[in-house]
């Protein structure tokens, strides 16, 4: 791997860690348990559209590992749920990347697949089908929340950050 790419990825990872940490400080959104904005996805989406699928997966996985070490949640149920969500989200967004969806569309699909992955993981852990009652509400929430994060990535792209080289 070229040094310039390695440096860029390290910076993006650091940024995603800060955003993921900031998100834990925000009060949880009501009324659906676990609903959140998904700020760290800004960086993953940016990496996906600017660099590629492989790089986005690296950022996602390293972020999950690092943030769980920082918060002390490694291999706990919350970690497993976040892991499944991130993996599903990456698959969804990678699929959408080469389709006709705009960045906003990719972001919405990423949010929706993230929720689906999380709930599937929660179901595997707990085994209660009543969990799926949250799913349509999480899907609906993925439209505004995904649009917001997608819009931020669009603005980032227009800014011609020093990260562009």
């Amino acid at each position: 791997m070229k040094n310039s790419i390695l440096t860029k990825l390290s910076m993006l990872l650091a940024l995603s860690l800060i955003l993921a940490y900031l998100e834990t400080l925000l009060p949880p959104f009501w009324p659906v348990p676990g609903m959140k904005l998904g700020l760290a996805n800004i960086i993953v989406l940016y990496t996906l559209v600017e660099m590629g699928k492989k790089e986005a997966l690296m950022i996602t996985m390293l972020r999950l590992l690092s943030i769980s070490l920082l918060l002390g949640t490694l291999l706990t149920p919350s970690f497993m749920i976040g892991f499944f969500g991130a993996l599903f989200s990456w698959v969804g967004m990678s699929w959408a990347r080469n389709r006709s969806l705009s960045i906003l569309g990719i972001s919405i699909l990423g949010a929706a697949t993230h929720n689906t992955g999380q709930l599937l993981a929660a179901y595997l852990l707990i085994g209660s089908t009543s969990l799926f009652n949250f799913l349509p509400f999480l899907w609906l929430a993925s439209i505004p929340f995904g649009s917001v994060t997608g819009l931020i990535v669009l603005l980032l792209q227009k800014r011609k950050l020093p990260l562009h080289s």
């Binding site: 969806l101 906003l104 569309g105 919405i108 349509p136 649009s147």
Partner: peptide
């Protein structure tokens, strides 16, 4: 701010949520 594919995706999500 959305293109046509985005709108189709949004409609699919809304319809499937309501069905669900």
């Amino acid at each position: 701010i959305f293109n046509r594919s985005d709108l189709i995706l949004i409609i699919v999500i809304i319809v499937s949520s309501i069905l669900f």
